[in-house]
Nucleic acid binder design. Structure first.
Length: 785
DNA sequence: TGCGGTGAATTTTTT
DNA sequence: ATTCACCGCA
């Protein structure tokens, strides 16, 4: 992963002045449009590149880097290019390397905020009270640590879970707040004891010689703020700074950049305020909105020519995002004339939606309605929440449609991988208490709560780590029986493995030995659960991943920052992913299911951050639509199972915001919950089924409905037929009698099997047998659509 | 100590 | 629905 020899680079950067080099030819400029070209050629001073979706941002960005070098403004190691993900960093490296060819010595500094901070922090660890070989904790370690502190503080960790505290601390760190800087307004958080715990947590980390992700930024910012000499050094080294996805920066990252750039002001930030979708984890759209005030005299360049999407798709996306108030404003345009409108379709429930999309994908693969056959690789389903994926996976598995899920649980976050790594960690650093705790009784070896408490006590009494404490405890005969015997075996194991490591044993063989001798491999071999085989497979992969590193230590250092989603398999597949995961990608055909109020926009988002949340949801919708090149299909369902309960759904308010001229409606409004103008009572959170039904009936008289009705009539024999449900076939019978076919807003159609007063027992076609109140059902002839 | 049953919680996700 | 954590029992 790291291809720089850090210390060499730093030294080089220090000793070199930016002497001008002979200008080189610039053929890459010819391929750029005027705006892109301006963004590439405005090399000095602050530049804000507002790059709309699909406007060739990456091309401009890499060209700019290459141009800086070619014009002799800087040597490669005087340029800093920051990205958010390792993937983005890797891609940029590849592309720049390609453009430069083999003529230039070295590449610019390219990496994520976090990976760059690790490098800086290792050089100046002592200024943060750490040793340079500090470990980086992942979320899991972090939470376990916090849990201990919370319990030690006598706080009920049920009412005040460690996960919540971790979130609060993360939030503070994102805002570059050290414990002493936490504002008074936040003092009440976590039962008025948040700052106290935060303080203790930081102390504990220092003792463990460890940092969490937030610390990487926070420590470096603090060092920069307190040590002018260090800051001055980095300002000299990073003479040109380039930041991708600037709209995603948080306060700490913003401060980091400002500190580095405020002197020479050669900073180019690239981003799109309309694609800021990470507010919930601390990103501040304000950073990009404020750029011109932060850097007076900044050149703002807008990339607005879109090379990806049809005019209809662009128009729909633009109209939607126009409903947001706080934005810088851009007008995407395209040369293209061709293309289909967006399609909008409603379904009965989530399963129907998945079925329809599956059929549609197969049809597009074959080539339909005058369109050429498409590859499954060119199609994607983008969902708001990952639980929506299941319906698609179930359906696609049953019809044998190949798919890949992007995102999902990361390799290094899996239980077995973390366990294995904990063994490695203890072998490499016997003081790693968190790792020791994790595996001391994994696999189960009879070292339970009691034994572990004794170990911890012994460690505390002697002021040593847990492993050493365990040894002292055993030598003193303080732990007998099975636990004592097993612990001895484990300690001997670690002693042996550490010795092997020091003796220079090949680290791959060593890793295998550790996993075997510790009984960890056997643990999964004996496990009969269906995913045991997969876990063993993952362990094998882990060992294989070691090949790329020289030793265990090097491996562990890097893994903390990497999240690879490997094993790309070449065969054609439809992609399924969340909208968040889709940012930066594009597909000729995109399906956007689940556009229902509460799901998308997410109820929680709106509850927690109000209008701000709603605007972020809208940006998410914008990101979704703009992923599409040729075809974009939005859909919603009238009923959806939410946490096992059937719920009637209302079409998303975003659907109303789509410009009708650019949308082809496949479902007549009213059907399955309505299309445009289904003027349902959205303001209220809880609406009774009856009220909803009435409101929906009212929608028949709304202007939106009439408008839609006339539009639908213009398309005789259209695809509307596709979704008209057989179950709607009339069979009028009186409701509320045994045998009557009825309709219930949440559960759908069913037959009454018993009547007790005003309570009916109904055998629903979809939801099975339920007891319902009679006033909530109607005979199906009365169904309002 | 470890298993199995019951109850509560449940976005989005990178580093 | 499904997962996960915790409690009570063997």
């Amino acid at each position: 992963m790291t291809d720089h020899d850090d210390s060499r680079l730093f030294e080089q950067a220090a000793s070199l002045s930016a002497r001008a080099m002979a200008a080189r030819p610039t053929p890459y400029l010819d391929a750029l449009n005027p705006a892109q070209r301006a963004a590439v050629e405005t090399l000095d001073g602050p530049v804000l590149m507002l790059a709309g979706a699909g406007t060739g941002k990456t091309r401009a960005l890499t060209a700019r880097l290459v141009h800086l070098l070619n014009m002799g403004r800087a040597r490669p190691n005087e340029i800093l290019a920051v990205t958010f993900t390792n993937k983005a960093a890797r891609e940029m490296k590849t592309r720049v390397a390609e453009m430069l060819g083999e003529t230039v010595e070295g590449l610019p500094w390219m990496g994520t905020f976090h990976s760059l901070c690790v490098k800086i922090l290792r050089r100046h660890a002592e200024l943060a009270g750490l040793k340079s070989n500090f470990t980086i904790l992942d979320t899991d370690d972090q939470i376990r640590l916090l849990k201990q502190l919370i319990q030690a503080a006598g706080i009920d960790d049920k009412r005040w879970p460690a996960r919540m505290m971790a979130g609060i601390i993360d939030n503070w760190k994102n805002r570059a707040l050290t414990p002493e800087n936490v504002p008074a307004a936040d003092a009440a958080l976590f039962n008025h004891r948040g700052t106290e715990i935060y303080e203790q947590y930081q102390q504990r980390l220092r003792v463990l010689n460890a940092v969490d992700f937030g610390d990487l930024l926070l420590h470096v910012v603090t060092i920069f703020q307190r040590h002018d000499d260090v800051l001055a050094q980095y300002r000299r080294w990073f003479r040109y700074i380039l930041v991708d996805e600037y709209q995603d920066t948080n306060v700490a990252q913003y401060l980091w950049l400002r500190l580095l750039a405020s002197e020479h002001r050669n900073i180019c930030c690239v981003g799109d305020d309309d694609q800021s979708i990470y507010g919930w984890r601390g990103a501040e759209v304000g950073n990009i909105l404020r750029f011109e005030q932060d850097f007076p005299g900044a050149t703002v360049i807008r990339l607005e020519q879109n090379y990806r999407s049809t005019p209809h798709i662009l128009a729909a996306a633009s109209a939607l995002i126009a409903a947001n108030e706080s934005r810088l404003g851009k007008t995407l345009w395209t040369d293209r004339q061709d293309g289909d409108k967006l399609r909008l379709i409603g379904h009965w429930d989530g399963e129907d939606e998945a079925r329809w999309i599956g059929e549609e994908i197969e049809a597009m693969q074959r080539g339909t309605r005058g369109h050429a056959p498409m590859s499954l690789d060119d199609m994607a389903i983008l969902v708001r929440a990952s639980h929506q994926m299941r319906a698609f996976e179930d359906r696609f598995l049953s019809i044998g449609l190949p798919y890949r899920v992007i995102g999902g649980p990361r390799f290094y976050e899996r239980m077995e991988i973390r366990d294995a790594m904990a063994y490695f960690r203890v072998t490499v650093s016997p003081d790693d208490d968190l790792a020791f705790e994790r595996i001391v009784n994994t696999p189960k070896r009879g070292i339970g709560d009691v034994a572990q408490r004794k170990i911890a006590q012994a460690a505390r009494d002697n002021g040593v780590g847990l492993l050493e404490g365990a040894r002292i405890l055993l030598d003193a005969g303080g732990l007998g029986g099975k636990a004592g015997k097993e612990l001895r075996v484990l300690l001997d194991g670690f002693a042996r493995w550490s010795a092997m490591m020091r003796a220079g044993e090949n680290h791959i063989a060593l890793a295998e030995t550790i996993l075997d001798e510790s009984g960890y491999t056997a643990h999964w071999q004996n496990d009969k659960s269906p995913d045991a085989a997969g876990r063993l497979e993952n362990l094998k992969e882990l060992v294989k991943a070691l090949e790329e590193f020289e030793n265990l230590q090097g491996f562990l250092e890097h893994v903390a920052l990497i999240m690879e989603n490997e094993s790309e398999d070449a065969s054609e597949k439809v992609s399924i992913m969340t909208l968040h995961a889709a940012k930066g990608l594009e597909f000729p055909a995109v399906f956007l299911p689940g556009w229902e109020d509460g799901l998308f926009p997410s109820q929680r988002s709106m509850d927690e951050t109000g209008l701000k949340g709603l605007e972020e949801e809208r940006r998410l919708a914008y990101v979704g639509i703009t992923r599409a090149g040729e075809f974009c299909t939005i859909s919603f369902a009238a009923n959806r199972r939410v946490y096992g309960q059937w719920q009637a759904q209302i079409p998303s308010r975003f659907i109303d915001e789509l410009p009708e001229d650019h949308v082809e409606v496949l479902t007549p409004p009213g059907l399955y919950g309505g299309g445009y103008g289904a003027a349902a009572p959205r303001a209220e959170r809880k609406v009774s089924a009856l009220e909803e039904r009435v409101a929906r009936a009212d929608a028949y008289n709304s202007p939106g409905w009439k408008r839609m009705q006339s539009r639908t009539r213009q398309r005789p024999g259209g695809a509307a037929a596709v979704v008209i449900d057989q179950r709607a076939a009339p069979a009028a019978e009186p409701a509320h009698e045994i045998g009557a076919r009825i309709f219930h807003q949440k559960f759908g159609y069913g037959r009454v099997t018993a009547v007790e007063g005003d309570k009916l027992t109904v055998d629903f076609e979809k939801a099975g047998e339920k007891k319902v109140v009679a006033s909530f059902v109607t005979g199906e002839d009365e169904v309002p659509f």
